[in-house]
Amino acid sequence: MNNVLLYLITVVVWGSTWIAIKFQLGTVEPIVSIAHRSMLAASLIFLYLILRRRLAPLSLRNHAMIFMQGLCLFSGNYLFIYPATEHLASGLVAVVFSTMVILNMINGAIFLGLPISRMVLVGGLIGLVGMVAVFSPQLSDLDLSDNSFRALLLCFAGTFCASLGNIFAARNSLERLPVLVCNAWGMLYGALALYGVALLLGTPITVDWEFSYVASLLYLAVFGSVVAFWAYVTLIGNIGPDRAAYTSLLFPVVALLISTVFEGYQWSLLGLAGFCLVLMGNWLVMRRGAA
Rank of each mutant, 00 (worst) to 15 (best):
R54W: 07
L49I: 08
L6P: 03
I66H: 14
A151H: 05
V93Q: 03
V226G: 09
G108Q: 08
M187D: 07
M105S: 10
A170V: 06
G196A: 07
R176K: 15
G113A: 08
G224P: 07
W209M: 10
F156G: 00
G91P: 03
A35R: 05
S212G: 10
A273C: 12
L88G: 11
T159Q: 03
V93A: 04
L139C: 03
L71Y: 12
G15S: 03
F46E: 12
W283V: 08
V253W: 09
L71K: 09
L164K: 09
A56D: 14
A184Q: 04
L217K: 05
T260P: 12
G113C: 02
H63F: 14
F275P: 07
F229H: 15
I239H: 02
T260W: 12
G158D: 00
L201C: 05
N107Y: 13
F160G: 11
M65R: 14
V197A: 05
Y82H: 00
T85E: 14
H87Q: 01
L177C: 15
V11G: 02
A41M: 00
I81C: 09
L114Y: 13
V278Y: 05
S75I: 13
A109S: 13
V95K: 02
V101S: 15
V93S: 08
H87A: 02
L269N: 12
L125P: 13
K22N: 11
F156P: 00
V197D: 01
T99F: 14
W14H: 04
A221Q: 02
F262S: 07
L25F: 01
A184L: 08
F23L: 07
C276K: 04
L144K: 04
E263F: 12
I205L: 04
E175N: 15
A162F: 07
G240Y: 06
S259T: 06
A221T: 03
V4D: 01
E175K: 15
R287G: 03
H87W: 02
L55F: 15
A89S: 06
I45G: 05
G127Y: 09
S259L: 10
A228L: 10
T247N: 13
S59I: 07
S173V: 11
L44P: 05
L154F: 06
G202L: 01
V28W: 01
G281R: 05
A231H: 08
Q69V: 07
V11C: 08
N104C: 08
N166P: 07
P30W: 02
W185I: 11
N147G: 12
T247V: 10
V129F: 15
L249K: 14
I116M: 14
F156T: 03
R54M: 13
Q69S: 13
S216W: 01
T159M: 12
W209K: 03
H63M: 15
T260Q: 13
G202D: 00
L55N: 11
Y195I: 03
I66P: 13
A184D: 04
P57W: 13
Y219S: 14
Y213S: 05
P204G: 00
L139G: 02
S90M: 01
L125D: 13
I258M: 14
Y213A: 00
T10H: 08
G15E: 04
